[in-house]
Structures are given as structure tokens and as C-alpha cells.
Design a protein around this nucleic acid. Sequence first.
DNA 1: TCTTTTTGGTGGACATGTCGACGAAAATTC
DNA 2: GAATTTTCGTCGACATGTCCACCAAAAAGA
Lengths: 164, 164
Amino acid sequence: MPQGKLDQDTETADFRSGLPLSLLIHQLAMKIDAQGRALIARHGDLTLPQWRIVRVLGLGAPEGSTALRKVLGFDKSQFSKTVNQLQERGLLSVTDLPTDGRQLRVSLTDAGRAVHERLAPVLEARNDHLMQALAPEERRVIRSALSKLSHAAEATELPKGNVD
Amino acid sequence: MPQGKLDQDTETADFRSGLPLSLLIHQLAMKIDAQGRALIARHGDLTLPQWRIVRVLGLGAPEGSTALRKVLGFDKSQFSKTVNQLQERGLLSVTDLPTDGRQLRVSLTDAGRAVHERLAPVLEARNDHLMQALAPEERRVIRSALSKLSHAAEATELPKGNVD
DNA sequence: TCTTTTTGGTGGACATGTCGACGAAAATTC
DNA sequence: GAATTTTCGTCGACATGTCCACCAAAAAGA
């Protein structure tokens, strides 16, 4: 038995429990992204941001570009690029939005709906898998907690006037 | 009052509550990163990954490169590049690790420690701010929940044999 | 010991996300 | 209604993160 190695792993694990919340969330997001990427790659050739757009449209998200973009939390730039990629692949139909000449109306094509039908169950199973890892109490509050953290992460100025 | 706009926002907010957990976590991580980036930029010129290395070393993380990398959850490549950036800036001292010829020993220089002392309180206040946004019950379980999700996100094969 | 396998750091190519600028359309103000 | 301000999509430059291939050192197996 490699005693030194065990010590090292234990030290690592112990240390991890004291890390800042921000780092833990970052790490979790990276792992979840990687897992999602792997599942998507195994069942098609979409990128993760592409799939996310297909996914929320498949879930019935609003089709106005701004509303859709805010649901996804995408940057304007990234949203524009990814939508155009999907349009070129024939998965999205992009038309003018009658009520606002600046925005677009984004909807799935038949091909886009087909991709969604194929991938959605896989990714849904993954999310179920994640939820099942939680204790009932945790499961009950996780969405509310994430939502509150999200709101708190939007503050540009923190309580402490910390500029010099 | 722009009634249409209110409807749209309400629709967006309502829809958000049904989004997949994976997307919510991704969105939260992006917001937290952006907030951290803004704070770091305001008090220095480190990048976020650079700060993370300085931070965990300042917290007393192991100095062996592999252990340190795993605490951070960094990719091998990114870790290597970021450590070299910090070394060039004179914030890190990188030497050979006696116990393993492949690994490196990474530690803060005096300059690195100074940067840590300057930034740590600011980022700590931010993390306090995040925690205070949670209800007591949520605060109690959040770390455990994140840890369980992290573990569940490492599975490469999901319960369902979902190939075709 | 000798071979094989695993693990570590590095570099390059690429995917993802951020930021600032730009013109066009809409909302606001006067 | 005209001028101003805001919001929108697009673009280019850059920061961040991922993935793969390479070689060297260590570990495991013979």
C-alpha cells in the first residue's frame, strides 16, 4: 500500500471542504458541463451551447430572441453566434419578429425537433441522476438556493465599501 | 406602463423555474465568475484562474503540483499555463518536488503573499454575501449538496443504458 | 532488471465565454 | 414629430477552458 499516496489524497479531500463557495460552484459547473458534453457527443454532434438553445426551445421557451436569450443567460454575442450556427445546420428557423423590428423570432425546425426528441431523454436522465444524489431535504431546497445565490451574484457593489 | 413588457418578463421568470438543474448551475457559475472577475479587476490585475491558485495556496493548500491541481479542479493544461504566468509575474516560486521527479513544488513568494493579503478580504466578503442570501436551512446543506452533485457529475456512464 | 502501463507537464488546436464598438430600430423625452 | 436615450444583433479581439498528442518519470508486472 502506498502510504504516502493515501496521506496525500486525504489531505486533498480534507482541504476541499474548506474551499470558498464560489470555487466549489465553479468546479461543479465544470464537471456538469463536461458530463453533458460527453453525453451530447455520444448521441450527436451538437456543442453544449447549441444543445442548450435547442433544449429550452423544446421545453417551450419564448421565441422572441431577447426573452429566449435571458432564459438561457447567454451573452448577446454568444447567443447571436450560436443561433446562426444552428440556423446554418437547419435546426432553427429564424424570422423577423412582428412586434419588434430589432428582435428575431427563433423556433425549431422539424430537424431541430427531431434532435431534441433524440437527446432530451438522455439529458433528462442525467439531471434525474444528479437530483437523486441529493438527500430529500437538499432536493427540496436546491433550486431555491441556486436562485438566491444567482440573485446575490448579480450585485456589482458589495456591502462593504471596499474601494481602498 | 408597458403591459406587454411585463407579460414578457413574467413569462421569462416563470419559465426559468422549470429549467434543468444543469443549466441553472451553469448560469450561477457564470454570474459568480463575472462578479469575482469584477472584484479582482478592481483591486489588482490578476485573472480569475490566477487568483484561484493564489487563493488556495494562501489558504494552505498542498504544494505538490498534482494535489494542488486536484484541489482546484483545474485541467492539466490550464494549470500548467497559469502557474507559469504567475511564476513570470514573480508571485509563485516553482521548484522541483523531491519525492517525485515529474511533479513541481509550488509556493507563494512574498509578493504572492502580499497580493493574497490584499485581495482575500474582498473576496471573502463576497462569499459571505453569497451565503447570507441563503435561508438558514439552505446554508446548512449547501456545501453537502454541492459535494454530492459534484460526485454525481463525475459518472461517465449513466444508470440507463442509453445508447440507441 | 526489463518491459509495460500509468501518471505528470507542456504545447497547439479548438470550443466557449467576455467585452467593447458599431449601426439599426424602438422607447423616451421634449 | 424631432431629438435623445436605450435596446437590439452583429462583429472582432481577447480571456478562459477543453482536448489531444507528445515525451519524461514513476509504478506495476514479468
